[in-house]
Amino acid sequence: MIRLTTPITEEQIRQLKCGDEVLLNGRLVLSRDIGHKYMKEQKPEWLKPILEGMVIYHCGPVVKKNPDGTWSFVAAGPTTSIREEPYQAEVLDTYKVRGVIGKGGMGKKTSEGLQKTGAVYFHATGGAGSLLAQRVKRVADVHMLEEFGSPEAFWVIEVEDFPVVVTMDSHGGSLHEIVLKKSQERAAALMA
């Protein structure tokens, strides 16, 4: 088991390989559909210091506002990442992001982006909303909450031993590609 704390350096990320199990610590920044479109089209400068060396988490949490005005995460598993395929590579490059957490894997364009920028794709268990919310220790900040709504806002959270698996590395490896090819071959045999 590998433990990594954000911000992460390019050197650290280049050492990771497909199949590595990693426990993430430190800050993660949540972003999904609206956020990725916004980052690609408007390239806001204010996000640069927030995202450099960080890991983006594809997640729209269920949140709860506490009486003292702070926020808690009630359920926070990953959302399907492939929807960010048109944006991800450019976002990684613009903001020097070192990793993305999601589910289901991503495509060729993102894989090329991971190799170019020096970043990896981490896979988390989809649907494990309760389990993963327990690893969120604190909600540090939130941006664009009013504009995007709570599932789409840029939540900045602090996590402890957040469990993920590297399924796409910075050397072109992709576990998703391997499973896809094998299942396509098997499907062809079943349909013959």
Binding site: G60, S130, P163
Partner: peptide, 19 residues
Amino acid sequence: DMVKNIVLADGHVTPLCQD
């Protein structure tokens, strides 16, 4: 992990999944 999650959500009465 899925089974763990099921037990947690039931115990805490929180959504099984954020979606």
